[in-house]
């Protein structure tokens, strides 16, 4: 972390071509859900969310780049798995987005669950874990089905539009955006439903190198802080008034201010005590970041794993105390 402070810039490994999560805009700047976490970490450590050097990485180079020190933190829609956590000598800090494989079918097909899909044909990308998960799921229930595999997305979508397959399976985030963009000529978004069942777990979040627990903790608690801020109702527009006049001791601890003239609690993160004020005022809380980048893609939060735990989701921050 001292390296980051000395350099005055956070090197953040990101995706440059995943809609909603990380893309390059026409003026050359980066934007997206993952990008905002880079900004948040920079705001916490350096006090300025613009002090980020973005390093666009391919899926195959991302872990090497982190391991070799070319980047400080990897936020590139990376799924948290046991082998990655252990074998790569890298640590997953927290889950910022719960993705999972889903199944999209035509609304008029009458399919409500995977169990209904006996004898169905399912379109899937070739040679992916998606294909394996699909097979696992249907084999588990002992339902016969026919997979129809494709190399790339475009012919797959064409086959689905021609109703050559009954179901289309990939990550739910991908399905939602494909559904939102479904051409009106083929019935538009309303002709399709994404089944509620999730076939696989894909928790995505930032990674740091092993044995750098100081930096790891900062990344982790910045993410938790943004979740806690949403839970406490603090957002980028009211954070300064909340900091001046915190409503309760918990809010005061999160924002690094004293409550009722009391002492300021120092969590000893090695960064300014009011780091969450900077993060929230410059980037926003979890909900704001989500609404900004993922809601336009049609990824609704209500009822999904990415709702706050108080709303029945999995977005849950350990207590700030």
């Amino acid at each position: 972390m001292d390296v980051v402070k000395e350099r005055g810039e956070l090197k953040c490994g990101v995706n440059d071509n995943l809609t909603g999560f990380g893309v390059v805009m026409p003026d050359g700047s980066f934007e997206g859900f993952d990008i905002d976490y880079c900004k948040a970490i920079a705001a916490a450590i350096l006090g300025d969310s613009s002090k980020v050097e973005y390093v666009p990485l391919t899926a195959s180079a991302r872990f090497t780049a982190l391991g070799s020190g070319e980047i400080d933190v990897l936020i590139r829609n990376t799924t948290w798995t046991a082998s990655r956590d252990r074998e790569l000598a890298q640590d997953f800090t927290a889950t910022t987005f719960y993705d999972g494989q889903g199944m999209m079918v035509y609304a008029d097909s009458g399919y409500k669950t995977i169990e209904d899909m006996s004898g169905a044909t399912v379109c899937v990308l070739q040679g992916t874990t998606t294909e394996l998960n699909l097979d696992d799921r249907f084999t588990k229930s002992g339902i016969p089905y026919t997979p129809l595999t494709f190399e790339t997305n475009d012919p797959l979508q064409a086959a689905f539009e021609e109703k050559r397959c009954d179901g289309w399976t990939t990550d739910k985030s991908g399905l939602a955006s494909k559904r939102a963009e479904f051409p009106a000529s083929a019935g538009g978004p309303d002709a399709l439903v994404v089944l509620a069942e999730t076939l696989s777990k894909e928790p995505l979040g930032p990674l740091t190198r092993d044995n750098d627990s100081e930096f790891y903790d900062v990344v982790q608690w910045v993410v938790f802080g943004m979740m806690q801020a949403e839970e406490s109702g603090i957002n980028s527009s009211n954070v300064s008034s909340m900091a001046a006049n915190p409503k309760d001791p918990g809010m005061a601890r999160l924002l690094g201010v004293g409550f009722d003239g009391g002492e300021v609690q120092d969590f000893q993160f090695g960064i300014p005590k009011d780091f969450m004020q900077k993060v929230i005022s410059q980037v926003g809380n979890y909900g704001e970041v989500y609404d900004r980048h993922l809601v336009p893609l049609g990824l609704t939060r209500e009822g999904s794993f990415n709702a706050l735990w108080t709303d029945g989701g999995l977005i849950y921050a350990p207590p700030f105390r």
Partner: peptide
């Protein structure tokens, strides 16, 4: 050189259709 985190012409051509949902399919 796109694998070295540089944004060369071809990489720009690959990434711009992903900027917004309305560009999907414009590869």
């Amino acid at each position: 050189v796109f694998i070295l985190a540089l944004t060369d012409l071809l990489q720009v051509g690959r990434l711009i259709p992903e900027q917004e949902p309305e560009f999907f399919g414009r590869q």
